[in-house]
Design a binder for these strands. Structure first.
Lengths: 211, 211
DNA sequence: GTCTATAATCGGATAGAC
DNA sequence: GTCTATCCGATTATAGAC
């Protein structure tokens, strides 16, 4: 009975193989985008025959959607790190720090997002227009409250968030360039820690009202 | 004699057609990257038969190299906007402003650069490791001189430049996302002017030593 | 569930008439 | 210089044996 489970989810081997395909897909999509990626290359990196890949994920698009789905889920959980705290410095430092940690922990996710945006966001457009837009609006209100209280300088909240997103994601999306400018070596943990602290500090100094 | 010039450069029609292919290539490479782009789609957008494209640019890679070549040239001319002036605020404001203007004037160039970095920079790697690295080193010295004089706060110059690059290029690379977050409308000239001013202001406040 | 073989289509590039 | 017709390798996906 258990040797040939009709429902694949029962098999532990399935999960392992599915994950290796999934991970390989992430790396190929991150490098080459949806159109540039080939199922042959994904299968090669996963170490499975191409037909096997199509058994687990019927089409290239289904695989791509599964990958983006996971990225949006991860984004949602990280977005909550921006809590409505009373102290803007503390809240912003936590948020920017979390974004830097994400870029470090999952650079591929950031790159797939970037690539999807570059091609016009056909798959995640709805997410951008609904979930992301709502999130941004709600945070905008918090920022404006801080401004009204004189806790931060007056800024246009949207452009302020774009700066945070751009700067933090840059460490993932442009890792190739950063490495090339670092004598060919990826940033060490120590270097990244310095960059992380400096990004937080510069962002805060840029927006906090001088005492 | 002139009706069938042996050297194509003699023909004015050639320049027009070459440019339309070149421009179409820029837009397709910016959206889909080198691998994702197809010569058929480039020819379609240029309004020429595919074979005609291959007459002017023998291979897809030759066309891509011509496109990147132009981007590196544009970068070099913009890089000089960071002059060794005595006043850091003035020099940095000019540089950041110039970068914002570039992102607005030529978003495609920025996107092609981003896409090239995402795939590991096979074509511009040498440029990154030589020209760009040297430029960064020389500017780093200027920044350190300003720090020594107490004109700006102590920062790691490299990460400071990464923030400038990331933030300014974000307006080109993530235009799709920014538009989606702006009720589906691209930033107007007025909105962009606000963003531009705010980016300059925030960067300066983040690094300038409080008086 | 797995994987070799293959169908069907796409994409880069060229031949050769005009 | 231009462009239709076409070659041929690459690519997505499936058939069908195991």
């Amino acid at each position: 009975m258990t040797s040939h489970p009709s429902r694949p989810s029962r098999s532990a081997g399935r999960e392992v193989k599915e994950k290796s395909i999934f991970d390989a897909a992430r790396s190929v999509f991150a490098e080459l985008g949806f159109r540039g990626a080939t199922t042959a290359e994904i299968a090669r990196r996963a170490g499975v025959p191409k037909a096997n890949l199509h058994y687990y994920f019927p089409t290239k698009e289904a695989l791509y959607r599964a990958v983006t789905e996971q990225i949006l889920t991860a984004w949602l959980s990280a977005a909550s790190s921006f809590d409505e705290q009373d102290d803007p410095a503390q809240a912003l430092a936590a948020y920017v720090g979390a974004k830097m940690d994400m870029a470090r922990a999952d650079p591929l996710g950031s790159r797939i997002w970037a690539s999807e945006i570059l091609r016009g966001a056909p798959v995640i457009r709805d997410f951008l227009e609904t979930t992301l837009a709502e999130w941004l609006s709600s945070r905008e209100k918090i920022i404006r409250r801080w401004m009204d209280r004189g806790q931060i300088r007056p800024v246009e909240p949207r452009y302020f968030f774009y700066m945070i997103w751009a700067t933090t994601q840059h460490y993932a999306d442009f890792e190739t360039q950063i490495t090339a400018l670092n004598r060919g070596k990826p940033l060490s943990d120590e270097q990244f820690a310095v960059a992380r602290a400096q990004v937080i500090d510069t962002v805060l100094r840029g927006i906090l009202a001088p005492i």
